[in-house]
C-alpha cells in the first residue's frame, strides 16, 4: 500500500489536518496522528494500517485515492479522465456569446478586452443581424444534434448596448427559434449600464434577459479604475442604471467588481453593507487577470478572505475566479468535467463582429469562423484547445501543485497576455492556491 504522491496537507491546528488528492479531490479532516503516519510511510501493509486506524478509515482513504496500490494504476486512472470528458467527434459546445460591439464608452484600467483582444482592431466593430442569426442557427442545430437541452446565449462586448438595435431585432428571432424547436434559451447581457434607458430595460425584462453589471466598489474606489473614455469616473452613470432597473421592479441581485493595484485598498466590507441594504445575494470580486503584478498578493488574499467571511454572515455569497478551484474541489472528476471556465473546457463559442470565433471573448486564439460552427468541434484549433487540457501535458510545476486538477491552468487570458513573463502567472498561482486553502479553512469552521 502506498500514499499517493498527489496527497495534499493543510494543517488546521494541533489536532487535525485537511487532506485531499490534487486530482481526485475529496477534502477531509483527519486527526494529526493519521497525518503523521501518511507523511512518514512510504509503503506499508494494509493490515498494519487497519490494526492502528481501523477498517473504516482504510476504506475511506482508499475510496479517496489517498491510499493506492500502485502508482501506475493511479496514473492510468488519471489519464482516463481526459478521454472521458473530451471525447473525439462529439461537440462539447454549451454556450454562445455574441460580441455585439467591439467598442465601449468606458476605458476601465484593467479591461482585458482592450488589453488582450486583437479582434478589437478589426474594421468590423458592430455585430450584424445576419452574422448573429447564422451563428444562433448553427449553435441551436449543434446543440440539438448533441442532445443538449440547456441553451445559453449571451450578449457581450465591448459594450453591447452600443448595438442595441440589433439586440432588439435578435430577441424576437430567438423567441421564434424557441417556438420552432420547442426549446428554452437562457439569455444574458453583460453591460456597463451607462447607456441603459427605460425602454431597453423593459425589453430585457420582458424577454427574460438577465442583466449582468459591474461596479468596482464605492464611488471612491470605482472612479479610480472604472473610467469613461474621457477618463472621468463612471459611478453615477452605473448607479443610474441600477436605479432604472429597481424602479421597474427588477433590481439586480448582485454585481461584479474587479480589484487592481489602483483600487485594492478601497475594496472592503462597506461594499458588502451597501449590497446588503439593496437586498443583493451575490457579489463577484475578481482580481485583474492581466495586470496587478506589483501589488502584494498577501494583501489581496487577506482582503478577499475577510470580505468573503463578512459577506457570508450577511447572507451574501462572494465569489470570483479565485473561488473556482475550491468549488471544483467539491466535485467528482470522474463525473464532472472539471475546468477553470467554459472557455477553458471548450464549452463556449464567442463570435466577434468579424465572424471570427474564439473560446473566450477576450482571447486571440481563433477556433474558426461563424460559418464553421456546425463542425467547429472537429477543427484542429478546437482539438488543440482540448489537447492542452490533458493533465499529462501540463508543466511539472502544475503537476506538483496542490490544486493541480482543480485550477486547470487558470484563465486563458492571463496566459495569452503574459507569454513573455512568468511573474503574473506566478502571482495568480499564489492567489488561487492560497484562496483555496483559505476557503477550506472557512468551510471547516462553518
Amino acid at each position: 500500500m502506498l500514499v499517493s504522491k498527489y496527497t495534499q496537507y493543510l494543517s488546521l491546528n494541533d489536532d487535525s489536518t485537511v487532506i485531499w488528492h490534487s486530482v481526485f479531490g475529496c477534502a477531509m479532516q483527519i486527526p494529526n496522528r493519521l497525518t503523521c503516519y501518511l507523511k512518514d510511510s512510504h509503503s506499508f501493509n494494509d493490515y498494519d494500517f487497519i490494526e492502528v486506524f481501523g477498517e473504516g478509515a482504510f476504506e475511506t482513504l482508499v475510496d479517496a485515492r489517498i491510499l493506492i496500490y500502485s502508482t501506475e494504476q493511479e496514473q492510468a486512472d488519471i489519464d482516463t479522465l481526459f478521454a472521458k470528458h473530451n471525447p473525439r467527434n462529439k461537440s462539447k459546445i454549451k454556450y454562445l456569446s455574441l460580441i455585439m460591439s467591439e467598442e465601449c464608452p468606458f476605458r476601465c484600467v484593467y479591461c482585458i478586452h482592450f488589453a488582450n483582444s486583437k479582434h478589437y482592431y478589426n474594421k468590423e466593430k458592430m455585430m450584424t443581424f445576419e452574422i448573429a442569426k447564422a451563428s444562433i442557427d448553427s449553435y441551436i442545430k449543434l446543440m440539438l444534434e448533441n442532445g443538449e437541452t440547456d441553451f445559453y446565449i449571451n450578449f457581450g462586448g465591448g459594450e453591447p448596448l452600443l448595438n442595441y438595435p440589433v439586440i432588439a431585432e435578435l430577441l424576437p428571432y430567438i423567441k421564434e427559434c424557441e417556438d420552432k424547436h420547442d426549446i428554452k434559451i437562457k439569455l444574458g447581457i453583460n453591460t456597463n449600464l451607462s447607456l441603459l434607458n427605460k425602454e431597453m430595460a423593459e425589453t430585457f425584462i420582458k424577454n427574460n434577459v438577465e442583466i449582468v453589471a459591474s461596479l468596482d466598489g464605492t464611488k471612491a474606489g470605482n472612479d479610480k479604475v472604472r473610467l469613461s473614455k474621457n477618463l472621468s469616473g463612471t459611478y453615477d452613470s452605473i448607479i443610474r442604471g441600477f436605479d432604472i432597473l429597481r424602479e421597474l421592479g427588477h433590481p439586480l441581485d448582485g454585481f461584479a467588481m474587479t480589484v487592481t493595484e489602483a483600487n485594492l485598498f478601497d475594496v472592503d466590507t462597506e461594499i458588502i453593507d451597501w449590497a446588503s441594504t439593496l437586498g443583493m445575494k451575490e457579489v463577484r470580486i475578481d482580481v485583474d487577470v492581466v495586470g496587478i503584478v506589483k501589488s502584494p498578493m498577501d494583501e489581496v488574499i487577506e482582503r478577499l478572505t475577510r470580505i468573503r467571511k463578512y459577506a457570508k454572515e450577511k447572507g451574501i455569497s462572494v465569489i470570483g475566479f479565485w473561488s473556482r478551484p475550491a468549488e471544483n474541489l467539491g466535485l467528482n472528476p470522474e463525473e464532472e468535467d472539471i475546468g477553470f471556465c467554459g472557455g477553458e473546457r471548450g464549452n463556449s463559442l464567442c463570435v466577434a463582429p468579424s465572424g471570427q470565433v474564439f473560446p473566450c471573448g477576450y482571447s486571440n486564439y481563433q477556433l474558426g469562423n461563424y460559418i464553421d460552427i456546425p463542425t467547429i468541434y472537429n477543427n484542429d484549433a478546437y482539438l488543440n484547445l482540448l489537447a492542452n487540457r490533458d493533465l499529462k501535458n501540463q508543466p511539472e510545476k502544475c503537476q506538483e501543485c496542490p490544486i493541480f486538477g482543480f485550477c486547470r491552468g487558470g484563465c486563458l487570458i492571463t496566459k495569452e497576455a503574459n507569454q513573455k513573463s512568468t511573474e503574473k502567472q506566478t502571482a495568480m498561482c499564489k492567489l488561487y492556491i492560497e484562496m483555496t486553502k483559505a476557503i477550506i479553512r472557512q468551510q471547516v469552521m462553518m
Partner: peptide, 30 residues
C-alpha cells in the same frame, strides 16, 4: 495483548462551496 493505540479515527468530509454558475460573469466564464 497490549493495545498501543486506539483503533478508530474520525474522518470528516469537508463540504466545499457549490459551483458558482451564476451569470455574474460572461457565458464563457461559467
Amino acid at each position: 495483548m497490549k493495545e498501543t493505540a486506539p483503533k478508530k479515527v474520525e474522518i470528516k468530509m469537508v463540504k466545499m462551496p457549490a459551483l458558482a454558475m451564476t451569470c455574474k460573469k460572461p457565458s464563457n466564464c461559467h
